[in-house]
Write a protein that binds this DNA or RNA. Structure first.
Length: 302
DNA sequence: GCGATTTGACCATA
DNA sequence: TATGGTCAAATCGC
C-alpha cells in the first residue's frame, strides 16, 4: 500500500483545513445574506464558489483515500490466494452449475448510511431481494448499472423502520464508472471535479442521510428515532411495499428522475434559494462535518 | 427488442 | 445446517 501513515495524516489535515475553511466561508455568506443592504467587496456567488471549491477539494482527498483503500483490499485478496469464485471475478469464469458461488463479504470497502430515502442519486440496478431472518422487511441488493463496464459498486438496502420510513443502506466498493446520466445533479462541475463527488449545494438527499459506519451503527439506529418524517420523505420509493402488500413498486428508473424532479420545498419553488431557511441546512451540515472525530468513514478508508 | 425487475435456485459462509 | 449473497430465467414495461 502506497499510502503511508504520514501521507494519511497529511491528507487528514488537509481535509480538516478545507472543511474549516468551508464553514468559515459559509458563515460569511450567512452574514452577508442576513444584512439587507450588503454591498461588500465579496459577492454571494463568489462565496458560494469558494464553499463548493472547499468541499470539492475535501471530497477529492477523501476520494483518493477511498481509491487507495479499495486497491489495497484487492491486493490483499490476491495475496491471500482468494478462490476463483470470489465476488465479481467469478463472473469471468461463469459456469452455469456454479451460480451462486461467491465469497461472503466481510469488511472490505464498505460503509453504511441510515436515511429516510433510499435514493442517493446513483444509477443502481436491482439484482436480488431476500427475506432476512429476524427482520420484518426483506433486503434488496443493487449493483451499479455499469457493472459490465467494470464498476464494482454494490449496495444493500433494508428498511428498518416504517413510521417514519427509515432505510439502512450498506455500500460496498466505490463507483469507478464515470456515468453522470442519473447522478448529474450530484456533480458540481464535471469538467473540474471528480465524477463521484457529491455536491452539497444541490443534493436533496444530503439532509436526509446520516453516515453510519460499523462502529457507530448502533448509535445511529437509535438516533434515527427522531429523524424527520416529512411528506417528502414518506413519498420516497419503497421497494418493500409490494412485498408487504401495500402498494406496487414501480420501476426504479421510471419513478425517480433527478432532472425532472428537482428537490422542491413546500412551496414547490424548486431548489431552495440562499435564504435563511435553506442556509440553516447547509450550516448544520458544515458543523456536522466540522466534527471530524465523528467522521468514522474517513478513518475507515484511510 | 431491449433493458430492468422479480424470484426461485444455488452454494459459500458462519 | 441455517442464512445470506448472487445468478439467471421469466416476466414486465417502454
Amino acid at each position: 500500500m502506497e499510502m503511508g501513515s504520514e501521507n494519511i495524516h497529511a491528507k487528514r489535515g488537509r481535509v480538516i483545513v478545507e472543511l474549516l475553511k468551508g464553514r468559515e466561508i459559509a458563515t460569511k455568506l450567512q452574514t452577508l445574506l442576513n444584512s439587507p443592504d450588503h454591498d461588500g467587496d465579496v459577492s454571494v456567488e463568489e462565496l458560494a464558489l469558494q464553499i463548493s471549491t472547499s468541499f470539492s477539494v475535501t471530497l477529492s482527498v477523501l476520494s483518493s483515500c477511498a481509491a487507495a483503500s479499495t486497491q489495497s483490499a484487492q491486493i490483499s485478496a490476491v495475496d491471500g490466494g482468494g478462490s476463483a469464485c470470489s465476488g465479481e471475478s467469478k463472473k469471468k469464469v461463469a459456469v452455469k452449475d456454479r451460480r451462486g458461488c461467491y465469497k461472503r463479504r466481510k469488511s472490505s470497502d464498505s460503509w453504511m448510511t441510515v436515511s429516510s430515502t433510499m435514493e442517493d442519486g446513483q444509477a443502481w440496478r436491482k439484482y436480488g431481494q431476500k427475506i432476512i431472518s429476524n427482520s420484518k422487511y426483506p433486503r434488496c441488493y443493487f449493483r451499479c448499472t455499469h457493472k459490465y463496464e467494470g464498476c464494482k459498486a454494490l449496495k444493500q438496502v433494508q428498511m428498518i423502520k416504517e413510521d417514519p420510513i427509515s432505510y439502512q443502506t450498506t455500500y460496498f466498493n466505490h463507483h469507478t464508472c464515470t456515468d453522470t446520466r442519473r447522478a448529474s445533479y450530484l456533480i458540481l462541475d464535471s469538467d473540474t471535479v471528480e465524477p463521484n463527488l457529491i455536491s452539497f449545494q444541490s443534493n436533496p438527499m444530503i439532509n436526509n442521510i446520516s453516515l453510519v459506519t460499523k462502529e457507530s451503527k448502533e448509535d445511529h439506529d437509535h438516533s434515527t428515532q427522531s429523524e424527520d418524517d416529512s411528506d417528502d420523505a414518506k413519498s420516497s420509493l419503497n421497494p418493500w411495499q409490494e412485498t408487504i402488500g401495500l402498494e406496487p413498486w414501480g420501476s426504479y428508473k421510471s419513478e425517480w428522475d433527478p432532472i425532472m424532479r428537482p428537490y422542491q420545498d413546500e412551496e414547490g419553488s424548486g431548489f431552495q434559494s440562499c435564504g435563511s431557511t435553506s442556509f440553516h441546512g447547509l450550516d448544520m451540515e458544515v458543523n456536522q462535518l466540522g466534527d471530524i472525530d465523528n467522521f468514522h468513514y474517513f478513518d475507515d478508508i484511510c
